[in-house]
């Protein structure tokens, strides 16, 4: 490692932190196979990196979160059946190729016989690669439905439905701001409307901040929708709206990277 600053070894830290282009990553993977110094550094990194997570204090799990999580799984299944299938698909073969290469390197690393301790493989570093989104587009502005009397203390409530695009995945993200806090098991529920058909996209709660966020990964493509609505339900088990409508989409905006 003495000549790290001028050698291919210089790319180790970027490789391990997941930075750099695909080409740089592939170039470094070739180098890693042949460089015992970098292999030793990679072991050092993993031993410490995995332990950093212990610095998170264990805190109480919100009791209503489980219903939200299980509800989002059910909602996702029902939405899959109405997905257009025309949306951008993630290039799965590239991920498989990348993972296969990682596994191949790992095998070589294991076989080289210097692996220390209980080590998480390099390939899992990229299991769900953290990425900065490429673009954020506002699909709908969501206006508060003030006629329902719920916004007397929240005159500036509003929301947006955004399409967040990144290299591997698109997400539909619903934000609401300045909206009443949920209480006693209440949940906000997001509904997507197409040709008069309403499909649940999931639920979320709102705390004292008055801010709520719900994210829907779009692995099946972007669902076709004419409008987005948000209701306030007595719990997070609704299959059709039972509570008041809180937000509705007012106009579609086709521009606007954030």
């Amino acid at each position: 490692m003495n000549d790290r600053e001028t050698s291919p070894c210089e790319g180790l830290i970027e490789y391990l932190t997941g930075e750099g282009s695909d080409m740089e990553r592939k170039r470094f993977e070739k180098h890693l196979v042949a460089c015992s110094s970098c292999q030793e550094e990679a072991v050092l990194w993993h031993q410490v990196w995995d332990r950093l997570a212990d610095d998170a204090e264990i805190i109480e799990l919100p009791t209503d979160l489980k219903d939200d999580v299980m509800g989002s799984i059910v909602a996702r299944e029902s939405l899959s059946s109405v997905a257009a299938g025309k949306g951008p698909r993630k290039p799965r073969f590239r991920n498989v190729k990348k993972r296969a290469m990682g596994i191949a390197i790992l095998l070589i690393v294991f076989l080289s016989g210097w692996l220390l301790g209980n080590l998480q493989p390099l390939s899992t570093m990229k299991e769900s690669s953290a990425q900065t989104p490429d673009s954020i587009e506002t699909l709908f502005h969501l206006s508060a439905v003030k006629s329902n009397g719920k916004f007397e203390d929240s005159p500036r409530a509003y929301g947006v439905a955004c399409l967040v695009r990144s290299k591997d995945q698109d997400q539909l993200v619903i934000y609401v701001f300045g909206t009443p806090q949920t209480k006693d098991g209440e949940a906000y529920q997001v509904w997507l409307l197409k040709d008069g058909q309403r499909t649940s996209a999931g639920t979320f709660t709102v705390g004292e901040s008055g801010i709520g966020i719900m994210t829907l990964p779009l692995q099946e493509g972007i669902p076709e929708m004419d409008a987005v609505g948000v209701t306030l339900e007595p719990d997070n088990q609704s299959t059709s709206p039972r509570g008041p409508k809180m937000f509705g989409s007012s106009k579609q905006d086709t521009t606007g990277d954030a």
Binding site: A53, D55, A56, E57, I58, I59, L61, P62, L65, D68, V69, S72, I73, R76, G202, F204, T205, V206, G207, S209, I211, G212, I213, M214, T215, P217
Partner: peptide, 23 residues
Amino acid sequence: YSFAFRVCGNETMAREVVQLVFL
């Protein structure tokens, strides 16, 4: 949830992370 709370610093985003992880 605890890890997400440590990273995000608030309940709203930590809840979102838990939903995304289990999805």
